[in-house]
């Protein structure tokens, strides 16, 4: 795996072993796990009382309550289940530009790191490409830490291409999701702001615990290589724009990109979602460990 995704170094993996995923809400999972579930279960976490019924285990009768009310009540406990985690990766053409920034590989590294943390806890994870392309190894939920390598092998074969309407893509994915859970959306979010807000808002409205991770390239932020008279071609739509770019224009472009990122972050926080920005020019390990706090990855 390390040679497939160089960002996932052994040192980082060893640190990922100490992280676990936390959710703001309790979600009903699949099978036993380590996350509290809204279902009644046998964990140590008290949930409620209910009147004793025939066949209930005497050990759960609350004798103190019986003394006060002269009625039998049994104590109910929460169930601990595995968490369902959905990771959506933007594999549109924009993720392949600028090529020197390796944005898509960075997105895959983030996804695999998250998947590793999830699978390490014994939870289940599903990785989906927002273009709708299905990765056979991740077609459904996978479980077990050993499956990370399989995921990595399957994902590195994906080549970003095509255009993406984020709202439509997320809506399509939402329809196919039967149980709520943790959701990560990894994209450069270089699209219309309304599409981002609506797309992410769909999952928030569906009671999902949504985290948005934006990946931007270092040279992309600097508009490197674009100077003088330039004909700019949109990688997704093929649309063209002629510009005269100087140092002032480059500074204004960078400011625009960063303002867009700030607005996305504001929307996320307003709707109870989490947000992190990764600049591919920075160290991946430093980013991930710092962003872990914002993404509810705790020790």
């Amino acid at each position: 795996m390390f040679d497939l995704v160089p960002e996932l170094t052994p040192k980082l993996i060893s640190r990922l072993d100490h992280l676990r995923l936390r959710t703001k809400r309790e979600y009903a999972g699949m099978g036993r796990g380590s996350h509290l579930s809204p279902r009644r279960g046998s964990s140590l976490e008290f949930s409620d009382f209910r009147p004793y019924a025939l066949g209930d285990d005497f050990r759960y009768i609350d004798w103190g309550l019986y003394a006060r009310t002269d009625k039998f009540y049994v104590k109910l406990f929460k169930e601990e289940e595995s968490l369902l985690t959905y990771i959506f990766i933007d594999d549109s053409a924009s993720m392949a530009h600028p090529a020197a920034d390796n944005k898509f590989r960075a997105a895959l590294a983030i996804a695999l790191a998250l998947a590793y943390v999830v699978l390490s806890e014994g939870d289940r994870v599903m990785l989906r490409m927002l273009s709708g392309r299905v990765v056979p190894a991740a077609a459904g939920f996978v479980q077990g830490r050993s499956r990370v390598a399989d995921l990595a092998r399957a994902l590195v074969g994906v080549k970003p291409a095509g255009a993406l309407d984020l709202a439509a893509a997320l809506a399509r994915e939402l329809i196919s999701i039967k149980r709520a859970g943790k959701v990560f959306v990894i994209s450069d979010f270089l699209m219309l702001f309304n599409s981002i807000r609506r797309g992410l808002g769909l999952f928030a409205a569906a009671n999902m615990d949504v985290s948005a991770i934006q990946v931007l390239g270092a040279s992309e932020l600097k508009a490197q290589g674009i100077i003088g008279q330039a004909e700019l071609v949109d990688a997704e739509t093929g649309e063209r724009l002629r510009l005269s770019v100087g140092e002032n224009e480059r500074a204004r472009y960078r400011e625009t990109l960063l303002r867009l990122a700030r607005e996305i972050r504001a929307v996320c926080l307003k709707q109870g979602m989490r947000y992190a920005l990764y600049n591919t020019g920075d160290s991946f390990e430093d980013f991930f460990l710092k962003a872990a706090v914002h993404l509810d990855l705790v020790h």
């Binding site: 450069d188 390239g217 330039a230 472009y253």
Partner: peptide, 17 residues
């Protein structure tokens, strides 16, 4: 002009050009 393929024209369009 040099032809340059970029990830998105979104921010460039905002330059008002």
């Amino acid at each position: 002009p040099n032809r340059v393929v970029v990830s998105s024209l979104l921010a460039f369009r905002a330059l008002g050009a």
